[in-house]
Every structure is written in C-alpha cells, then in structure tokens.
Amino acid sequence: MEIAVIGAGAMGSAIAGRLVENGARVVTYLEGRSASTIQRAKAAGMEPVGLDAVAASRLILSIVPPAEAVAVAEQIAVELRRTGRRTTFMDCNAISPRTMAEVAAIFGSDCGVVLDGSIVGGPPKPGQKGPKLYVSGDEANDSGVLVEHGLQVRRIEGSIGAASALKMCYAGINKGVTGLGTAMLLAAIHSGADEALKRELQESVPDLYAKLVHGIPDMYPKAYRWVAEMEEISDFLGKDDPAALIFRGMAGLYRKMAKDREDGGLLADQLDELNSGA
C-alpha cells in the first residue's frame, strides 16, 4: 500500500513512521526542504519522490502548517490535472471550515475525492495509540486503509468542514488556555506579582497550573505555527462574534513568543524561571 504524506515536520514524519511500521510504503515530496526535514523524513522511512509519483499515490495526506494548506492543495491539484490522475486527498491541517471549503474547491470534481481531516493529540509515540485523526466527508471509507496501517481514525458525521470545525473548537480551548496562561504569567512577572500568582494558582487551581507548567515550554518551538491556527479559529468564529477578537489577540501573542525564540528567548527564560520547581 502506497500513501503520500506531504509534510515531514514533527507530526507528519511521526504519522508516516507509524504507517511504515505497519506495512505501508510512504512517499513524500522534499524539494526545497531543509536538511533537518530531509533527515527527519529519512529517519521515519519516508521515500522522497517527484510530484508525479505523489499524484500516483492512492491516498495523499497533507500535514503542514495551516498557513501552507492552500498552497499545498494547489500544487497537488495542478500535478493531478497535468497527469490526468485522480486520487484521494485528505487535508489534515488546523484550518477553518471556510479554508477547508477552499481546498475542496481547488480540487473540484476532476481530481478525485477530497476528505476533511483533523489531528487531535501529539505525534505518535511507541506504545501509544494516539493521536486521533478525525475525518468527515468520507462516505466511501477511504480512510479505512489508515486504520489498517496503525492509525487511530474516527469518522464523524457531516460533510467537508465538520472535522475542521472540531479541530477549531478543540484547539481554541486547548491552545487558548496555554495562550491565556502565558499572557497572564508574563503580566504578573512584569508587574512583580509573579510569585504571589504562582502560589495562588498552585493552591486554587493546581490542575490548571500543572497544565501550564507543561504546556507553556512545549509551546515555544510551535508558536510560529500557532499564529495562523489562531487566525483560522478567529475566521471560524466570524467577524460578528466578539470572541473572534480573542483569537486575533492569541495570534499576536504567539507571534510575540515566536519572535522571542528567534531573539534568544528572554520571555521564555522568565516563564521557565518562575515555573521551575513547580
């Protein structure tokens, strides 16, 4: 069984590795990618091929940062039309239902089948079942082959957009809490209320504080990807929903944390120092 995975980041390479472990041949397209990405793909057992070979795959998974989702769809659709092939393309990215509809429109009816997928959970790890891959619009059970090769797939009712909506809601809660905690802890540090806030969180909401202690450092290397994801959530809520402004603000926060990482991590160091020994 040959499956194409576009995107050899932490999630894409780990998903590919799980498929390879369970007997699938996984191909990918690496032109223009960094040396570290190429090495990660190799370690996962992904085989680099040209776009023509990707288009020839029975199933193509797009697992890229949300800001790249439309461009990847356009690239694959152009190749499918050039070769006259048809395939099943599953967008697994953190995008809004509106963006997912744009992806589906790019493929039209002449390139094959488009499925709406969303990944909930971290990259696969040995001995663990996750993450969960939610899929909507899969009337023919084209995602069943992924189950056969080791992935945890949950088909949900609804057409294109249903799985993306689920991802927006889940990420809005999960990453929204991390962003809110980051913002308020930084505000406490800068105003001298940090140790008092830390103690109060430990006493009043210990489970929440434990989540922040783990989730905030885990966020630093991902912040640049979460910017577009927060913007997608804002788009999902719509301009008439006041809560959309919250996620525009979250995008700005994660943009600030991404820049902090590029600049040496001063804010991250302050947060880590406060939360050390928690």
Rank of each mutant, 00 (worst) to 15 (best):
E200Y: 07
A193I: 00
L180F: 00
T182L: 07
L166I: 03
V177W: 04
V213G: 13
G172E: 09
G179I: 00
A210V: 15
A210K: 15
R199C: 13
L212D: 11
C169D: 06
D194M: 01
M184Q: 11
Q202K: 06
Y209V: 08
V213P: 13
K167D: 02
G176M: 05
G192M: 08
E200A: 09
Y209C: 10
E200P: 05
A163P: 07
I189G: 00
A171E: 02
L201H: 09
E200M: 08
A165N: 06
G181R: 00
G176L: 04
E200D: 10
Q202M: 11
L186R: 07
N174F: 11
M168N: 05
S204H: 14
G179L: 00
T178G: 05
L185W: 05
E203A: 14
E203M: 15
L201N: 09
R199I: 13
S191M: 05
A210M: 14
M184F: 12
V205G: 14
K175H: 12
E200L: 10
G215I: 03
C169Q: 07
L212F: 13
L212N: 12
A187L: 01
L208P: 14
R199N: 15
L208E: 13
A193G: 03
L166G: 02
S191E: 06
K211Y: 13
P206T: 14
K175D: 09
G181H: 00
I173K: 07
A196R: 02
L180I: 01
S191R: 05
G172M: 08
A162N: 10
H190W: 12
G172A: 10
H190C: 13
T182D: 05
L185P: 04
S164R: 02
H214M: 11
L212W: 12
K167E: 01
K211C: 12
I189P: 00
G176Y: 08
T178H: 07
D194S: 02
L185G: 04
G176A: 05
G181L: 01
S191P: 02
G181N: 01
I173D: 08
G192D: 08
Q202G: 08
V205N: 15
D194W: 00
L180C: 00
A165R: 10
A196Y: 01
G181P: 00
A188Y: 13
A165P: 06
A188I: 12
P206K: 14
A193N: 01
E203G: 13
G172Y: 08
L212S: 11
M184D: 11
G176H: 07
A171K: 02
V177R: 04
L212T: 11
G215C: 04
G179M: 00
A193S: 01
S191N: 07
R199G: 13
L185C: 10
L208I: 14
E203P: 12
N174E: 08
L208C: 15
E203H: 14
N174V: 08
V205W: 15
S204A: 15
K175G: 07
A193C: 02
S164M: 04
Y170I: 09
A187K: 05
A183H: 04
Y209H: 11
V213K: 13
A196E: 02
D207S: 15
E203S: 14
K167W: 01
A163E: 04
K211I: 12
N174Q: 08
N174H: 09
R199M: 13
A188L: 12
G192R: 09
S164W: 01
K175E: 08
A187C: 02
L212Y: 11
D207M: 15
A162D: 09
C169A: 09
E200I: 07
K175W: 10
